[in-house]
Design a protein around this nucleic acid. Structure first.
Lengths: 341, 341
DNA sequence: CTTGGCACTCGGCATACCTGAGTGCCAAGG
DNA sequence: CCTTGGCACTCAGGTATGCCGAGTGCCAAG
């Protein structure tokens, strides 16, 4: 009973099951794969695999389906990421190059990934831990309302509205705003988001007591925006694909949809996948921390400079891992290219 | 066979069916409602209602369920929008007031509406047809890349990156950018989006031939942003609620999810609901233009100044219309208040 | 270790049957 | 003319039953 053949059997089971979504029996394997042994032998191997917890039978007289551990082993040792065809790659590049701004890049990316994999695509906005302040603009909206706009070097923009304690339509008011704008930019531009917040701390002290309240309000809202900006956002597409893969979810897709709506959950998910290297990370079924996602798998990778932001795909554990991994990797590469250009 | 009683029967059927989600028969009506007549009489009335196409029987020996037309009549003539309780209204106000910026207002609103109605909430970003340019900022990112930022008086911000044909790190380059910034703002600030775009047309001609290409690029991207900004965006929440109301969708929730993902569809939907007045508009089942939404109803209303943007709820035709309408109306009012303050 | 043979299991399908909710209709009563 | 009780009829859905076949496990021989 060679170890090698047993793994070949596991591979065959995974492939068949992914393909047909029905438990696969020894006979079916015999027909669809050239294993060179008889059904009885395969049965023995399957017994052993079941013993090891890699496959399981839904009930006595049925074929076997892979367990989470089975998929895990498949992904780690048996699957090769099949590269996409040239045509597919061209199509990806074409589609992503049409984007007009960052939002559009993100939007197109998730849609693309969803349609490539027929699953739910998830993408974090480019991470900003190492991003810096590009410019800060103060725009008086009315005499007593001021908009603070923070522009980050990655192209993201955050805005806040504040109620001013001073009338800014007067000449002194305008002068104050102008000075504040200049000072703020001197202190913050080109600094990392966290550092900028620290620098701004001292600012109110350098203004006349009468002006300090306004300055404090502005600095406060900037602080807020800087923090918000560090909290990443997430975008998704392809939720309809969940409905398509109907029977794949034991109970209902409800919990999954719920989890998807909690962007915090998704951020945490992507954040803990650990894709520091260039590799594609996979989390299978119960490996997943979130309760609602126990019967789903996540395939993700980092992208962008330093790969600090993540992007990936979420679907039933019964998914075509090689294909999904290839798609995720390819899309991540193209997006990285585009963002860095 | 009084017309009046027949409508009372219809009302009772709708209420019961919404409540139990099971076809309702004459006997059940007799028990749960004080109609003052016997089952046989109710049966006669139900016959008549079926004749009129207001209710239908899923099969011979089952009770009746309302048809789209039945719901329509119910909504138009039989339902009174029951106002929310004081406690509910306080909760709504509290929750919405915690918002820090426009994005947050929108986000909170949809979530709130989804959880109030247990359905899918949809909200258009405040419409900008009558909004105007507040400020335009040009930010050099590198020597040859310039970011154009458009700030609209509603608080929305749109940004575009352009590749400059001239080096902007030189003194002349900086001067050019500064002049361009000033000129653009002179022309565009306080104008409506459409008008601003028109004004900017003439700008390239007023610069030196050498500078025109850059000016044209900037104006072009602004044009783009102005148009984009007029195209509204849409945000939704509560898709998981679709899964909960399982049997309510004849086939699957797939098509519905698909439609929800096509934001263009949703915009069109909200756009064609015609909520000019302060009323709540309802579209029931097949009244709906989009194929994937034939078994859903949409309850929406306008909000904000002039009620040009819409917000609403989407769910199975079997929904609690009075409650939903009340929630939509109440939330719209609070959001309007907040946005106008 | 492999293989063919064989007994065994059990989910799923088809069939049959029964029950009860619900209807439609009718004839009698107000 | 409307209302009402009575009654026959229909039919979806649940339960009981039996059969079939895919699939397994085990064993003895190669």
């Amino acid at each position: 009973m060679s170890e090698e053949r047993r793994l070949a059997v596991l591979r065959a089971i995974v492939q068949d099951y992914v393909h047909t979504s029905e438990p696969v029996g020894s006979k079916a394997l015999l027909e669809r794969h050239q294993l060179g042994v008889s059904a009885a032998t395969i049965r023995n191997d399957m017994s052993a695999l079941e013993e090891e917890g890699l496959i399981a039978a839904p009930h006595t007289s049925a074929g076997r389906i892979p367990t989470d551990a089975g998929y895990r082993l498949f992904v780690d040792r048996l699957a090769s990421i099949k590269p996409l065809s040239a045509a597919e790659r061209v199509a990806i590049a074409r589609f992503l190059e049409g984007a007009v701004d960052l939002d559009d890049v993100v939007d197109r990316t998730v849609r693309l990934l969803a349609s490539l994999t027929h699953q739910v695509a998830v993408m974090q906005y480019p991470s900003l831990t190492r991003s810096s302040v590009r410019h800060i603009e103060l725009v008086p909206m009315t005499a007593r309302r001021l908009m603070v706009v923070l522009i980050v070097n990655t192209g993201r923009v955050e805005q806040r509205m504040i109620d001013a304690t001073r009338d800014m339509s007067t000449p002194e008011g305008q002068r104050l705003v102008a000075e504040l704008r200049q000072r703020i930019n001197e202190l913050a531009v080109d600094r990392r988001l966290g550092d900028a917040a620290a620098e701004l701390e001292s600012l109110p002290g350098r203004f006349e007591p009468d002006d300090r309240e306004l300055v404090r309000a502005v600095v406060g809202s900037l602080d807020d925006a800087l923090v918000e900006e560090r909290e990443e956002r997430v975008v998704l597409a392809g939720t309809a694909n969940l409905a398509r893969s109907g029977t794949d979810f034991p109970l209902s897709i409800g919990p999954v949809l719920e989890a998807l709506e909690e962007h915090v959950v998704l951020l945490k998910l992507l954040g803990t996948m650990g894709h520091d290297e260039e590799a594609v990370a996979v989390r299978i079924g119960a490996e997943n921390p979130h309760a609602g996602l126990q019967s789903t798998s996540v395939v993700s990778t980092g992208y962008g400079t330093g790969r600090v932001a993540g992007l990936g795909v979420l679907g039933p554990t019964r998914m075509d891992y090689p294909l999904t991994m290839a798609s995720v990797r390819a899309v991540a590469r193209y997006v990285s290219d585009i963002l860095e250009s």
